[in-house]
């Protein structure tokens, strides 16, 4: 099947979605995603960030689709023509979606463990506006404790449903889900239950924001001060292929290995994730590939002095007086 995305033609097998086809072409034309996760069935379609315009339905029926469609849940047809980054309406609509997603988000990035690898940060940076037009108090939720491993920060949640799909598809019993509706909807366990099963830790990896974070890593370090290393172990429950986040010789955090799109390649078990925090538990393979634009690969702040000089130059150019130099 031939499909054209932003003027680039590609041949894809039947059943491919527009998003998958766009990802095959490359990151330049791939729409951003917040809720779609290729390894989770029925995920996607909720956040609406990946909407694109179909200007030609197919060769057989060339009429354009009347509304923008969610590219993650729309399969391609032969001869389909899709516009993503070249269509002004799509970019404007996406900007709107980003605004909606950020509207009730607390923007507490300075104290959020997800900062630096947060998909909402990237999305806001690439597609959002500099200021908000929302002037009302942001939504808050009462804190609930869901166990010793996973920290739930419901206020940061953008309702992507990924963790619910993990619970449905990876773990034995689904012990959490969505309660209430509309903008009062929240991820929760019924009557403050604890999430306990071998693969529940994967909800941390699939969470695009800092709503579900690792309690064993909480406030230990900013991610960009840690060094990702791929490692393996002989695990009976999972593949044992993980990514260690090291500071010196210390293993601060264990996560699944993530691909170019920020999705876990293979889900790992809770023992690997939370219990194996010694270097002796692991066989290292070498440093993980991290995209050069990621904050994580910014030299790990090894050349701090150089950076200080750079920042001071920038501040001078902007006419900014550092706090300690102010009268």
């Amino acid at each position: 099947m031939k499909v054209t995305i932003d003027g680039i033609e590609i041949d894809v097998p039947k059943g491919t979605t527009i998003l998958q086809a766009a990802r095959m072409i490359g990151a330049e034309v791939a729409p951003p995603t917040m809720c779609y996760y290729s390894s989770l069935k029925t995920s996607g379609g909720y956040c609406r960030t990946c909407i694109v315009k179909v200007t030609q339905g197919s060769t057989a029926n060339p009429t354009p689709m009347p509304k923008p469609v969610a590219s993650c849940r729309t399969e391609v047809m032969d001869g389909m023509v899709v516009e993503n980054t070249i269509n002004k309406d799509v970019l404007e609509a996406r900007k709107g979606v980003v605004e909606f997603l950020l509207m009730n988000h607390p923007l507490d990035c300075p104290v959020c463990d997800q900062a630096g690898e947060c998909h909402l940060q990237d999305l806001g940076y690439e597609h959002g506006a500099a200021t908000t037009r929302y002037e009302f108090p942001r939504r808050e939720f009462e804190k609930i404790d869901i166990g010793k491993y996973v920290q739930l920060h419901m206020t940061r949640c953008i309702m992507c449903f990924r963790c619910v799909k993990v619970a449905e598809q990876l773990t034995d019993n689904r012990v959490h889900g969505v309660m209430h509706r509309g903008d009062a909807a929240e991820i929760s366990t019924y009557i403050e239950n604890v999430i306990e099963n071998d693969f529940s830790g994967n909800v941390i990896d699939v969470c695009p924001v800092g709503a579900l974070t690792d309690k064993t890593f909480r406030f230990k370090s900013r991610v960009w001060f840690t060094k990702p290393v791929d490692a393996t172990c002989d695990c009976k429950k999972c593949s044992g292929k993980v990514r260690l986040w090291m500071k010196g010789e210390e293993v601060l955090r264990v996560t699944a290995r993530k691909d170019q799109w920020g999705e876990a390649e293979e889900f790992i078990c809770n023992t690997c994730r939370f219990e194996r925090k010694n270097t002796s538990d692991w066989k290292t393979e070498g440093p993980s590939p991290i995209h050069k634009s990621s904050v994580i690969s910014q030299n790990h702040y090894e050349n701090l002095n150089e950076l200080k000089v750079k920042i001071m130059k920038q501040q001078k150019a902007l006419g900014f007086t550092p706090f300690d130099k102010r009268p």
Binding site: Y46, T49, V97, F100, L101, M103, V178, A185
Partner: peptide, 13 residues
Amino acid sequence: HHESCGQCSPCRE
């Protein structure tokens, strides 16, 4: 507002 299901972002927010 009261009846929005909360699934997709534009309507929920």
